[in-house]
């Protein structure tokens, strides 16, 4: 299923003759994948910076919301790296976690608002971020699965 994305192979900077490694990375991080990587990289930076600050300074105010922010940032970082290195299965799993996260947290924040006194990236389905957090995992899953089918 996922024979092309060997973690050890993806690390090698040289192009491997057997089609693993760099070639695997190229198949998901080029073309439209390149745009996807840049969006995820931006979200990693923005969400990561914010979550880090919240965790360090105000964790006691809203531990659940801020832990979730940090978790979301972590998922974005993992996705960015996985896409760059062609770790297809990791990227797929992370995309599914991301989609689940935004749907569950979005629904909770609508119906049980007191559970999230502070906004997270995923609150109300990411409406504070133009719903990009909701659209992104769908695009990501589409891209990863379509890309795999084409191989």
């Amino acid at each position: 299923m996922d024979g092309t994305a060997k973690p050890t192979g993806a690390k090698a900077p040289e192009r491997n003759p057997d089609g693993t490694g760099t070639a695997a990375a190229e198949s998901v991080s080029t073309g439209p994948g390149r745009v996807l990587v840049s969006v995820y990289a931006f979200f990693s930076l923005a969400a990561g910076a914010r979550a880090g600050w919240q965790l360090v300074t105000r964790f006691a105010e809203a531990p659940v919301a801020y832990s979730l922010s940090a978790f979301a940032a972590l998922v974005y970082i993992i996705l960015t790296v996985a896409l760059l290195r062609g770790a297809r299965r990791t990227a797929l799993v992370a995309c599914l976690i991301e989609l689940t996260g935004v749907l569950v947290v979005g629904t909770f924040s609508l119906f049980v608002p007191e559970a999230f006194p502070r906004a997270t990236v995923w609150s109300t389905y990411g409406s504070g971020y133009l719903f990009i957090p909701l659209v992104l995992p769908v695009l990501g899953l589409y891209w990863l699965l379509r890309n795999r089918a084409a191989r």
Binding site: T30, G31, P32, G33, R34, V35, V37, S38, A41, F42
Partner: peptide
């Protein structure tokens, strides 16, 4: 800088897409 680098790395419409995102 990232937009220019990552956008120039691929000479296709998707390079321009990266610049749009940036």
């Amino acid at each position: 800088i990232f937009g220019a680098y990552w956008g120039m790395a691929e000479r296709s419409r998707w390079g321009s897409g990266v610049v749009t995102v940036a």
